[in-house]
Amino acid sequence: MEALYAITTGILTASGVYLTLRGRTFPVVVGLTLLSYAVNLFLFSMGGLTTHGAALVGTNENYADPLPQALVLTAIVIGFAMTAFAIILAMRARGDLGSDSVDGSRTDREDPRENKA
């Protein structure tokens, strides 16, 4: 099970990294989100993989490690804030520069519908 878990984390990471290397803002933000999922899974597993062991005192004998859980919990929320900030920054950049290229260059307007507007 551990091997499968590690491979899954690795593939999610790889997909996220690939997307963050793209040249347009939206895929980069999606990639960051995917990467943060992978990182959360990775950090979460630092306490080991426990079955039926929620860290509620008095419910069972073998507790899961609560510390990585607490850290990941806040990481999830902060990750959301980060994603939100990045995507809105991307929107702002598009609004101000007219392009959604990550390098901020004023290039082509890809959306054909925009010419009609």
Partner: peptide, 25 residues
Amino acid sequence: IATGFGGAVASLNFAVLTRDLNSIS
């Protein structure tokens, strides 16, 4: 690059998961 990154993370994850844990929890 992505494959290298993913491979490194997976290896690291596997290495940690198969080693003894001395938690402060």
